[in-house]
């Protein structure tokens, strides 16, 4: 670079564009009684290296929303009605199945709740890990073996060489989940979707897995979408939380903001309801009623029937998802003070 004008690199300060951007995603299921919406206009984004929690009770649509990102919902009966899922600039919903398969397991990894049902019982652990390397990386047997041993070491499985020859049923629940995580991370994905990864595990083992996820997230720098019904788990590992209720995202905030100043009455109720260690109360605050099943959701805000703060407007008009503070959005006509 001698002589001539030197062009100084220009620093362009740009907001980092999100790794994943889900834009008004609506998903429905075909049932005997016609189409039923289970995910309604869900929008969220995950930045590079960010860990985001998606919280809600069973049937709220959190798993369907996440599986839509992977395009793993069986269709029929499941249909994406509208929306875009932008991942590194590509709209995943428009990709053909070959391109999608190349992304799945390579740039996006997934871990499920029940490791026993997501591992194939008839093949060894080694065979199942090797598959990932062969499909996505075209590695030969020797390379695969070396990488597999490395990988098991990374997720804290000792005696890796011996483990490769074992079958899933020979491993404990915690070890199986580590194997699942190893497989999901084999190709160093940019995004890991973990759907209730510790729900089937005991509390002490759950802590081990959460610790592992935290460490790997930091080491690899990947983004994580953690789906859970447990606010405690989300508080421990996530930076930002999305709260889902009856198919919609009702609140989005940093963990600190959400736990200190929850705004949506549903979030408030969810945080107050469970018993907490060291805080005995004579009666627990409850959210009356039950989650309305898809197809029986009222007009307006779906939470209105159970909400102590509901007004006329709540029953008539769908709340707009609006910012109440920087980085804190709520879909509520009458948020908690």
């Amino acid at each position: 670079m001698s002589g001539g004008p030197v062009c100084a690199p220009r620093l362009i300060v740009m907001p980092p564009s999100p790794l994943l951007e889900v834009d008004s995603l609506s998903v429905s299921f075909a049932t005997d009684n016609g189409r039923v919406r289970v995910v309604e206009e869900v929008s969220f984004a995950i930045r590079q290296g960010e860990t985001v929690g998606l919280v809600g009770e069973s049937g709220c649509g959190k798993s369907v929303a996440a599986m839509s990102v992977m395009r793993l919902n069986p269709s029929p009966p499941c249909y994406v009605d509208e929306g875009r899922i932008l991942f590194q600039g590509d709209d995943l919903l428009t990709l053909d199945s070959v391109d999608m398969r190349a992304i799945r397991g390579d740039r996006i990894g997934m871990v499920f709740q029940e490791p026993m049902t997501s591992l194939n019982p008839t093949f060894t652990i080694g065979y199942q890990i090797a598959e990932v390397f062969q499909i996505h990386r075209g590695m030969d047997a020797a390379e695969t073996q070396r990488e597999s041993i490395d990988l098991l070491g990374m997720v804290g499985i000792g005696a890796a060489e011996r483990r490769l020859h074992q079958y899933p049923h020979e491993l404990s629940g915690g070890l199986r989940q580590r194997v699942m995580i190893a497989m999901a991370l084999a190709c160093r994905p940019d995004l890991l979707i973990a759907d209730e990864p510790t729900t089937a595990l005991d509390v002490t083992v759950q802590q081990q897995i959460l610790e592992l996820l935290r460490r790997l997230q930091a080491d690899i720098g990947m983004s994580v979408l953690l789906i859970s019904h447990d606010l405690g788990i989300v508080a421990e590992v996530c930076e930002r939380v999305l709260v889902m209720y009856a198919g919609r995202i009702v609140e989005s905030a940093t963990v600190d903001a959400l736990f200190q100043h929850p705004q949506h009455p549903y979030t408030v109720g969810l945080l107050a309801a469970p018993p907490r260690l060291g805080q005995r109360r004579s009666a627990l605050p409850t959210i009356p009623g039950t989650v309305p099943p898809p197809g029986q959701r009222s007009a307006g805000c779906h939470f209105a029937d159970r909400c102590a703060r509901a007004t006329e407007r709540c029953r008539a008009e769908t709340p707009v998802f609006e910012s109440v503070a920087p980085g804190h959005d709520v879909a509520c006509w009458n948020p908690a003070p």
Binding site: Q207, L210, L231, G232, A235, E236, V255, L271, L277
Partner: peptide, 9 residues
């Protein structure tokens, strides 16, 4: 100690 605390602080 293993019980997840719903309190990020």
């Amino acid at each position: 100690a293993a019980v997840p605390e719903p309190d990020p602080a």
